[in-house]
Structure formats: C-alpha cells, structure tokens
Design a protein around this nucleic acid. Sequence first.
DNA 1: ATACCTGCAAAGGCTTTGCGGTTCG
DNA 2: CGAACCGCAAAGCCTTTGCAGGTAT
Lengths: 154, 154
Amino acid sequence: MTAILICMESKERMINNFIEKCRKAGLKITPQRVAVYEILLSSKNHPTVEEIYEEVKKRYPFVSLATVYRTVETLEQMGLAKKVCYWGSSARYDANTEKHHHLICVSCGAIKDIYLSKDLDIPPELEGFTTEGYSVNVYGLCPECRKKKAEKAS
Amino acid sequence: MTAILICMESKERMINNFIEKCRKAGLKITPQRVAVYEILLSSKNHPTVEEIYEEVKKRYPFVSLATVYRTVETLEQMGLAKKVCYWGSSARYDANTEKHHHLICVSCGAIKDIYLSKDLDIPPELEGFTTEGYSVNVYGLCPECRKKKAEKAS
DNA sequence: ATACCTGCAAAGGCTTTGCGGTTCG
DNA sequence: CGAACCGCAAAGCCTTTGCAGGTAT
C-alpha cells in the first residue's frame, strides 16, 4: 500500500518534471505526449512502440503510431527514456532512469530490470576511449519460455 | 611478424574447424560460405551484413546479399559468430568466440573488444530466469570522435 | 542422384517522413 | 496568430522468403 502510494507520487513528480522540461525546451504539452510518457513510466515490461501505441489508443483511439514513434524519440533526446535493442526485431523503451541493468530472455526478448550489488570498476580511459558508463546484460530463459521448451521436449 | 603468423595460422585452424563442423552437420562447403566466415574472422570491425557483402563481392562478384544473410545466420546457429545490435539500424557480426565484452562509441557506433580481469558472479537463476551468460557494454567516445568534438567546441 | 545451396526478385516488418489540417501557448 | 504537433499514407531501410536453377557429396 505504502509502496504504491510512493510509487504513484513519484510518477506524478516525474510527469511534472517532464512537463517542466517541455516548457523550457519550447515543446508543446499535448495529451498524446503525456500519455506516452505516463504509460512508459507505469510499464514494467520495457514495451515496444507497438505496445505503447495499443495502450495510448485505449485513451485516445485516434492516436497514430507515428506520433508514438516521434514521442519516444523526443523522450530519448530529453534523457527521460532509453531505447533498448537486443534480439527481437523491434526496439523497446525504458523510462527507468536509475542505474540498473537488464535480464533478457533469449527466446522471447522479455526484459527485466536487475540491480548489481557491486559496481564494476571501469577506468575513465580505455583503449583511447573516454568512458561514460556501462551496462550489463544477463541472458537467459524466462519462466514462460522455459515451460514452453519443457512441453515441447516431452 | 610473429604475431601475424600466429594469427594467420589460427585463422586457418578456425576455418578448418568450420569446414569440419559443416561436414558433420550435413552442410555443404561452398565458396561463398567460406568467404563470409573468413572475412568475418579477418575483420576487426564487427561488420554489418552489407559490409561483409561488399567484401565477398570482391572475390565473387555475383554473390547475393541474401546469401550473406543466410550464411551469418548459419554461423550464428553453429556458435561461430554472434549478432550484436546496439545503436545503428543494422546488426553487426562478431566471430570472436573468446569470452569478451564491448567498448562502444556513443557517437559513431564503433565497437572494440575488451576483456575484463574479473568475471561477474551471476547466479544460475535470477528472478525466475535461468541464466546463460552475460555481456558488459562500456559506452564512451572513441579517439576520433573526441577529437571532432574538441574541434567543434573551439 | 539428391539434398542442399545459390541468385534473383518480391514480400515482410519496423521505422521514418511529407503533407495538410489542427492544437497549444 | 504562429510555431509546433498530429493523423494519415507513402516511402525507406533492413531482413526474410519462395522459387527455379545450380552445386557439393
């Protein structure tokens, strides 16, 4: 209960921050934009653009897929979302801006956030590159896909 | 000099191993296939399919892009190459089968292999997933892009 | 001889773009 | 009012696929 309240309060704060940032950047605050960001914030599944689109359509049935594509790109440029692209054909988006990593199902492409107990020690310069950060991807099979494989085998 | 000799010897061994594996799997050994694998082995740049295709075309002008796509997929299934997909639109391939990680330029997308001194300790089960491995991506700016940025700033 | 493979061209997904009308500030 | 944005449809990439002819074993 408490967790949910905190979470929702935080979400609202994130959205206000987003609106504020839009104002400063001269970007208009449209219902579609806010909806995309809100859905991305609420989602724990790193949705594809298509999935976000389906959600937005529940509120704004006439929204277009192109708008969702344009909005997630805007969010990425604002630093409020990240594009994650691993296996599958379509990119997924992530509005979690905390430092975290990903656990990825090699069969269906599902992504789950994970947190490492220790930071890696990456030197600020490596092979001539100046480094800015890192991400760890752990690959595996999600419970659903494991079940499916077991059924097939039998 | 020695390094080059060792490297070439190793490449030949890799190709022989590939041919052997093909035989065992009932796959035919065609010039195009061998060329794709050899180019991938020789390349230090994690080339795109298009780039491999251009190289193969120098030896076999009538090769088709579809063949290269099919071959890299075969190589991936055989465990001799990995698909890597980060920023750009097109996938890149990597025939380095040693355990290694990637240093990626966030500006131009260049990829360099890096090796970690310590392994991460990833449990075999995590969040319900069975884990199979992990990869670390370090993001940064390559020397060329850093230079370009410095020039722009001045 | 017969799988398997190739080249070609067409189709398939995902994503981007151009345009006219609309909406936010 | 004007700039920014939206929906629609078309176009653009990258990648996959079906097919008929060719090649390796």
